[in-house]
Design a protein around this nucleic acid. Sequence first.
DNA 1: ACTATAGCGGAGGGATGCCTCCGCTTGCAA
DNA 2: TTGCAAGCGGAGGCATCCCTCCGCTATAGT
Lengths: 193, 193
Amino acid sequence: MVSETRPALRVDVRRPQRADARRNFDALLAAARDAFSTKGTEASLEDIARQAGVGIGTLYRNFPTRQDLVRAVYLGEIEELCLAAEDAADLPPWEALFTWLRRFVAYAATKRAIYESLNREAAEFSEAREAMYAAGTPLFERAQEAGEARKDVSFDDMLRMVSGLTAAGFVDDEQRERVLRIALDGVRARAAD
Amino acid sequence: MVSETRPALRVDVRRPQRADARRNFDALLAAARDAFSTKGTEASLEDIARQAGVGIGTLYRNFPTRQDLVRAVYLGEIEELCLAAEDAADLPPWEALFTWLRRFVAYAATKRAIYESLNREAAEFSEAREAMYAAGTPLFERAQEAGEARKDVSFDDMLRMVSGLTAAGFVDDEQRERVLRIALDGVRARAAD
DNA sequence: ACTATAGCGGAGGGATGCCTCCGCTTGCAA
DNA sequence: TTGCAAGCGGAGGCATCCCTCCGCTATAGT
């Protein structure tokens, strides 16, 4: 047990020992992150290997199934998100929440992977998702207690809403930001509440 | 000139003459509608033909390219949406808008096709999209004029927001409805405005 | 009933993706 | 330096999908 100074999830996922192998491992992860974000988790594994500059065999040695690769990318992304939640904790309630959610949206990498996994059953995902919920929920509840967020909205409601926006297409980043703000205005407590 | 009693767009798309052929045509359209809604516009054409109970050759005769099939489904969906806007016109401003948007979300069929096409360049799509905008914008502006919708939000902002939610995954329909309501609360004019 | 022909369907060739397997290469410890 | 195991990469078998082509079927008009 023992949560270290940082919980950190086990993103390790069995990183190889030899220097060259480790290089390949990282290149694969980076290529996958990129491919998944632009083409979804159905992206061609052969493309990913090619993009990483390694043979397809190497990809399969490190990540025997597509799911393994998706999970590795996903876990890395989740970890980023958990750290971002810690960083935001110092800000005023609503701003902290908003900042974290913006990070959630902006972190292009796993956009689609996160979104897809939000529904996926697989146990290994649910563990990570719980970590993310554990990281984000305090921000949300703090905003509720400060009277800035509606009490009849759940964290899950809000996150799914935001993840939908994440997946949607916008003309440009300004519009994305604007729409995010609009949607979150719906979460904001109203004078009448 | 000449809007008929119903604009109706040309959804015809060259419907065949012979009775059996027309049956096949309709079955293909229905199967495609279904497949596109669940698997996106990349769904296997052979599956669609199989699902429709016709040979792959028949599919290609009616819709020489995938794009032709997508367009046919899309146009049908858009037409539904335009009609729904007319129907909603009798309701009070905000309710009319909300009713139309709910229809927008609920009409499962082209969920993804509409969403994908929202960005697609292709000219044939933009024409239909404009028809849809033309149908929905009055509802939105009426809500704005009635002081029920914010003036600093555009119809396009709102539609993209909603279409994002459309594509997102929810636990059940109640949650979808609830989240739609929350997001639209962000579009609603506030007392302070 | 008869027949011309619109329409049918699926075999099959080409492309791409998945994944396994195995002979070659190379980092690292001694 | 050297030896060897960890690691590499891609050929190739299998599956799936796309799309074309053409011999067969069944409709609709006479």
